[in-house]
């Protein structure tokens, strides 16, 4: 990684309107799907959560490609490195939160739904 005075986001292919439009349409579709899954109902809670999670992941990829113009061929090493770091942190934060909160949930709310009182003894 050497110092350079060119912008790190400068890509060989310049972004085009078609690119942005494709990204916009894809992002809109990927937002409407989970929204519809929640609003229309009919699916199990578990299925809805899977749909929301998956469409969110795909949308993140869409935004990276069409709006931030990051791909594995042309992007400078710094950008990919930053992206890898972001992935590590997202895994830490989301994975850690899921672990912590589900653990707390299992311990603190044994009768979820029936009785919302927390157990008094610890």
């Amino acid at each position: 990684m050497s110092a350079s005075h060119t912008s790190p986001t400068a890509n060989p292919q310049s972004p085009t309107y078609t690119g942005y439009l494709t990204g916009y349409v894809l992002a809109a579709v990927l937002s409407v799907i989970p929204f519809g899954a929640v609003m229309l109902g009919g699916l199990s809670t578990h299925a809805v959560m899977v749909i929301i999670g998956l469409t969110a992941l795909i949308q993140a990829a869409v935004q990276l490609k069409y709006f931030l113009h990051i791909d594995f061929k042309h992007s400078p090493k710094e950008n990919l490195f930053a992206l890898a770091f972001a992935v590590v942190l997202v895994v830490l934060m989301i994975g850690g939160s899921l672990w912590i909160v589900s653990d707390l949930n299992a311990r603190m709310m044994p009768a979820m739904g029936a009785n919302m009182e927390m157990p008094q003894e610890l």
Binding site: V88, D103, L122
Partner: peptide, 21 residues
């Protein structure tokens, strides 16, 4: 910098997580 993202639970040890966490 990296490790600072792996320790946040120590601010609420007593919230009731299990021993493993």
């Amino acid at each position: 910098a990296v490790l600072s993202f792996t320790v946040w639970l120590h601010h609420f040890f007593t919230m009731g997580s299990s021993a493993n966490v």
